[in-house]
Structure formats: structure tokens, C-alpha cells
């Protein structure tokens, strides 16, 4: 499979009164054609900003992409002028947001909205645009599309609106769809429908998909590969199986241990990651996760760990990756550094 998207050392910052927010702080990854990549991480860690950066939709001011490259089919789209970027954005990459109402125009019928996009990006006539709009609604499983296409967004349920968003995203046969929390506002049976729909459509049309979510179940079920982000950086990256069966960053381990699981007996207490993510204005020196980490050692305070190879196709940005065996996932394991004295800063053995 060919590489569709290469993100190299991407940096996006916001210049605010409280200081410079390093929302995306040097991330590097690639997306293959047709693959589904899951993007997971704590609230505020830069998932949406990294996605918006790919689309060059960062509000400027206060935001700015300050460094890096985004190669889409080999071309650095950060260097394109806004007209060319708009062309790519409509035709080759599309975005589905969590809150469909923010991206649908409430006073226009779906027919108008869809056909205008199609006229603009695919040079269709009005009539062709209308026909295609009906096709698209049918394709995303909206019953009675001939009638529904003449309705306004508020006449659709949340799940239906998300289908409409997917229809819009698909309208120009993009190569890449970025879905930012596409099902977070929906409940599970509709979530399952929407994700199955996205999955089958991406398969059918060979569209690559970046799914941003904090639902680890969704990633487990649908993603081929996973990027775990923390404080503006990717801290672990691998296939879904590698990440879930052999997590090698304490943050990933913490995430997996903090979710209640329906297939396992109820635990008396959940096991959260204590503390909170750092303020991205003042990211501490060294590893940003250090303050919350049960495995931290002195080195973590001074040296920022880069992504280091763990096994084929699997990287982790942790100085103690080697010490985190598979037993790290054991419900009772609190990390070897803490077992003796409960002090997270105990030195490595």
C-alpha cells in the first residue's frame, strides 16, 4: 500500500494572553491509502488541532502552524496558497466533526448544501448536483432520500445528521476523511451503525480514515493503527493489536486500565491516571507525562524521550519502555517503581 499522508515534525501554536500554547508539538506519522488510523488522547492534548492543521483550518490569529511538513500524495500542503488549499480540502480530504450542526447551514436544505459543494468542487450542474445529493443520502442509509433531501438540518436526528456529514464528506470522493469524535454525541447502537457505515464506505472506496476519539472500544474495533497523543506529542504508535495487547507507554497502560469493561467483572474502584495533563502553555522539561507516571525516574525530568522502536511497527516515547513488560496491564500491577514504597520517583532498578 502506498503512503497517502506524511506528517513530519508538525508544530502548531496559539499565541494567547496567557502565553504560547504548544498545542501540537512536533508530531510525525504517516497514513497509508485506505487505512484507518485511530487518534487517541486526553482532552486538550491537541487531537483536534492536529487534525485542523492537516486541513489548514487553524484560526489565525491566534493560531499558527509554526513548523513541519504535511505531505499529501507527496506534496507539502503547508506551502500551498489558500486557493489551492481550498481545492484540496474539498476534493481530496474532508472532515466530519463531532457536532454536525456546526458544519451544516441551518437555513439551507440539504439539497442546496450538498449540490453547492458538488457544483463547486466537481463542476456539476445544478441538476446533476441535485441528483447526486439524493444518491449520497441513499448511500449513507437515509431512508426516503428523495423527500429527506429537501429538508433542513434541524429536521434530522443526531445520528441522521452525522450520516449527512458523512455524505458531504464523501461527496467529492476524497482520499482522506478526518472524523473528529464522529460518534461521541451518539448512543451506542447508532454509533455502531455510523462506524460500520464509515468502515464499509472507506473499504469500498479505498478512503483512508483518521478517527479521533476517546473511546478505546471504538479504536479497538475499527482502527488498523493507533496514535496515542499526550500534551501535543505522539507518545505511542503501533497496530491496534500491539497497542492493546502490549502497551509500552505508561500513559497507554493507564488509559487501558482506567476504562470499565463490560466483558469483565465490575471492579470496586476504577483505576484512573491521577493528576491532570499539563497546561500546554507551560509544558515541563523532560517527559510531559512524568508528573502522573508511576514509572518515572530522574532522567524523565531532564530528557524528553523521543519515539523509540519497541518492535516492528511499534514505537513508544518512554525511557522505561523495556521495563514495562506485558504484565503492566495486569489489573493489580501498579508499576515496579511504586511497589516498594509507593513513591513514583523511586529509581529504576
Amino acid at each position: 500500500m502506498a503512503t497517502l499522508l506524511e506528517v513530519k515534525d508538525l508544530r502548531t501554536q496559539f499565541f494567547t494572553f496567557s502565553g504560547v500554547v504548544k498545542a501540537v508539538d512536533g508530531i510525525t506519522y504517516e497514513v497509508e491509502e485506505g487505512e484507518t488510523l485511530g487518534l487517541v488522547g486526553e482532552s486538550g492534548c491537541g487531537k483536534s488541532v492536529s487534525a485542523l492543521s492537516l486541513m489548514r483550518l487553524i484560526p489565525d490569529p491566534p493560531g499558527k502552524i509554526v513548523g513541519g511538513e504535511v505531505l499529501f500524495e507527496g506534496e507539502d500542503i503547508l506551502r500551498l496558497d489558500m486557493d489551492d488549499m481550498r481545492r484540496i480540502r474539498g476534493a481530496k480530504m474532508a472532515m466530519v466533526f463531532q457536532e454536525p450542526m456546526t458544519s451544516l447551514n441551518p437555513v439551507l436544505t440539504l439539497e442546496r448544501q450538498l449540490s453547492e459543494t458538488l457544483q463547486l468542487h466537481k463542476g456539476m450542474t445544478r441538476e446533476q448536483g441535485r441528483k447526486e445529493a439524493v444518491n449520497l443520502l441513499a448511500r449513507v442509509g437515509i431512508p426516503d432520500p428523495e423527500r429527506r433531501v429537501r429538508q433542513y438540518p434541524h429536521q434530522f436526528s443526531g445520528g441522521m445528521r452525522q450520516r449527512v456529514m458523512i455524505a458531504m464528506a464523501l461527496s467529492c470522493n476524497p482520499k482522506l476523511i478526518i472524523a473528529d469524535e464522529p460518534t461521541t454525541a451518539l448512543d451506542v447502537t447508532i454509533q455502531a451503525q455510523i462506524l460500520e457505515l464509515m468502515k464499509s464506505l472507506t473499504r469500498e472506496f479505498g478512503v483512508a480514515l483518521i478517527v479521533i476519539t476517546h473511546n478505546l472500544g471504538v479504536v479497538a474495533r475499527y482502527a488498523d493503527r493507533v496514535n496515542i497523543m499526550y500534551a501535543g506529542k505522539i507518545i505511542e504508535r503501533g497496530t491496534a493489536r500491539q497497542i492493546y495487547s502490549n502497551p509500552r507507554h505508561p500513559y497507554t497502560v493507564g488509559l487501558l486500565k482506567s476504562v470499565p469493561r463490560l466483558d469483565q467483572p465490575r471492579r470496586a474502584k476504577l483505576d484512573p491516571i491521577e493528576g491532570q495533563p499539563p497546561d500546554l502553555v507551560n509544558v515541563p522539561l523532560g517527559c510531559a507525562f512524568r508528573a502522573r507516571c508511576r514509572w518515572a525516574v530522574d532522567k524523565c525530568a531532564t530528557d524528553t524521550p523521543p519515539l523509540m522502536s519497541v518492535e516492528d511497527g511499534h514505537w513508544s516515547a518512554c525511557w522505561r519502555t523495556e521495563d514495562l513488560g506485558t504484565s503492566a496491564l495486569d489489573v493489580n500491577a501498579r508499576g515496579p517503581a511504586t511497589s516498594a514504597n509507593g513513591n513514583a520517583s523511586a529509581p529504576a532498578s
Binding site: 451506542v188 447502537t189 451503525q193 473511546n215 472500544g217 479497538a220 474495533r221 495487547s245
Partner: peptide, 22 residues
């Protein structure tokens, strides 16, 4: 319909995909 955060365990579960909406 609830996906289990573990690709291996999830693949083994029975799935009833409900069609239609409320």
C-alpha cells in the same frame, strides 16, 4: 453494540446490529 477495548476480545463477541433508527 458496545465495543470492548481489546481487539481480540471484541472480535469474539456476538453482535446484533440493529437496523433502522428509533
Amino acid at each position: 453494540a458496545v465495543p470492548i477495548p481489546d481487539p481480540i476480545a471484541d472480535a469474539q463477541r456476538e453482535r446484533i446490529l440493529m437496523t433502522g433508527e428509533v
